[in-house]
Design a protein around this nucleic acid. Structure first.
Lengths: 344, 344
DNA sequence: TTGTACGCGTTATCAA
DNA sequence: TTGATAACGCGTACAA
């Protein structure tokens, strides 16, 4: 249309230089006239280059949340395989042979094009992310953010607001009288997990704005012990008079807590709110022991993260710096609709 | 790899016949060995044919719900434009020059490859769908289903369960005492809209299973009048003693109802539950006049519908007969997270 | 500074 | 019944 060859058009499109003013102008004009949009699909066809992505997540052996994450990574792998993208998963342990740093260094040897990382131990993650920064390897974080190390993008949720929402869901008929509400941080080192504090702050904030807030007492507890041995501590908690609600800030150990509560005669008066649609949680949601779950979308977080990486690295698209997921409320009554839906 | 030409492989892949037993076997074997998956991208590149889709929806002039639907169609149009798919929107009125049948017949003249239809008047839609069936033109329905005419696929929600959920969300501290709950069907001819009755049945069902159900009375009302003149009727309703909740079964006219309720001194004791994140609804959700919204995803319904159509017609993929969306609960506290999220 | 030629995986057409 | 070949939109290598 501009009377020049495809080579010239290509040079104009990608500003590779070596184009005369004249040709440039003619091409630009046509581009505008036809509102040219590149066909990203065709682009990926004609490309020789492969994109190698490393997904670095904790070993999900005994953790339903991270097992879901792994499923999401697998789905992303299939989704992008036709574009010449490979995604390798690297699992790390909290310490020992397979510690985060060792695993990451090993992965770096194949010099990959980008990382997607779920960092659960901040202090251990930082040196790695700094190294990636030095070597100019882009990375996307999900689940927990470390904004100072400026990831290409962060995928997660607004944790403060998540706490506010949990509080709202607890504000039921039973919190009308004198009430005690417990916040439970289970199974994570609270020092490492700044993000759990955001949830707690949000939770407390909600009740500041409520009418009968003088009647409500919020207590927070850290249960940093092996999951299977918290039964005793829960029973002590349940003996608290006027206990009306329990907010468990991680998906971990919600099941064990629910199992103890299920046997308590006061279970119908105690609202239990936690996170994520893990099998064990769903069992207790169906029995009305868990009142509400807030879905953190463990499967979609890495999927979207990988999709952002590909869009940026392969298709040179702009991607958001932060992508916060909706805070999905799951009750017994809408659970099936979430399980059945294909868009999930 | 099989020692035959691409032409032969193509014939095997698409079972076009005219292939010798021998060649067929050799190709099949290789396909299995390499776990062949077709590259949909390349397929759409090398295809001459265009796919023409007609979206047939009511004129959204004064209806926020259907305006959202239109936005979704527009997004789908952009999404698929690079695959040689065109989507034309046809609007119909309830009657007159632009009645559903006339518009549909007009659209048929360009013999399109498929339809996506939001049928709001069952009786008017049936003859059209029958004609499509006769002419073997596939169609996807959304919003309301008419299973007898076997659409290629139906996109929507479980309406009975939607009613159950609405009831659950109303079961708050205020329904502890003697309570009256009102179901409002607004702005639709209830005879045409069987689906509203499903919501009502679900709503009533919930309270059958509840402890103090003897104290709860559920009333249903049809407000089939111009939206702007229902103010008076609402005020009469609000004067009902012990009114504790209002469930509006359509997204229409939730705003006007909320605006009346907002001025009522008892607003904090009356739970108002309705549908969809329309601007007007969000205003009242933020003011705590509307307690919960259930999101029907007016934007995504047509998007997914069109995507199913394309996958089936262009890529010959299997698609579900029914695709039910999750029943998303929107409260003031998680509203922003839904508005901000890119995955929505 | 510009143009040509090829390849990506697939479909479609035509000749053998 | 089979195979050769052009085309789709793009990136890239190389020749002019």
């Amino acid at each position: 249309m501009a009377g020049v060859s495809v080579g010239t058009v290509d040079r104009v499109l990608h500003q590779r230089g070596r184009v005369s003013e004249d040709a440039n102008a003619k091409v630009q004009e046509v581009l505008k006239k036809i509102d040219y949009k590149p066909n990203l699909i065709a682009r990926s066809l004609g490309r020789a280059s492969q994109l190698r992505i490393i997904a670095l997540i904790p070993n999900p052996e005994f953790d339903g949340y991270w097992r879901e994450v792994q499923v999401g990574i697998q789905q992303a792998r299939e989704e992008w395989s036709h574009y010449g993208v490979t995604v390798s998963t690297c699992l790390y342990d909290q310490e020992g042979e397979e510690a985060m740093e060792k695993v990451a260094l090993e992965a770096l040897k194949n010099n990959p094009d980008g990382f997607i990382i779920g960092p659960i131990f901040q202090s251990l993650a930082i040196p790695i992310l700094e190294k990636l920064g030095d070597r100019n390897i882009p990375f996307v974080l999900f689940n927990a953010n470390i904004p100072e190390l400026n990831p290409l993008c962060f995928i997660g949720q607004d944790l403060f607001q998540s706490g506010v929402l949990a509080a709202r869901l607890m504000d039921s008929k039973f919190t009308d009288e004198e009430s005690i509400l417990a916040i439970l941080h289970v199974g994570e080192d609270i020092g490492e997990s700044v993000y759990l504090m955001d949830k707690e702050r949000g939770f407390r904030e909600y009740f500041k704005g409520i009418k009968n807030n003088s009647k409500i007492t919020v207590k927070s507890l850290n249960f940093n012990v092996p999951t299977h041995s918290i039964g005793g501590q829960i029973e002590i908690l349940l003996s608290t008079p006027n206990l009306r609600g329990i907010y468990v800030t991680t998906s971990k150990a919600l099941g064990p807590i629910a199992s103890v509560l299920a046997k308590d005669p006061r279970k119908s008066e105690i609202t239990l709110v936690g996170y994520d649609m893990l099998d064990e949680n769903l069992r207790y949601l169906k029995k009305d022991v868990i009142t509400f779950l807030i879905n953190q979308n463990p499967k979609r977080q890495p999927m979207v993260g990988i999709s952002h990486l590909v869009n940026n690295l392969l298709f040179k698209k702009q991607i958001p710096r932060i992508d916060l997921f909706p805070l999905e409320i799951i009750a017994r009554q809408n659970l099936d609709s979430y399980l059945a839906s294909s868009i999930h």
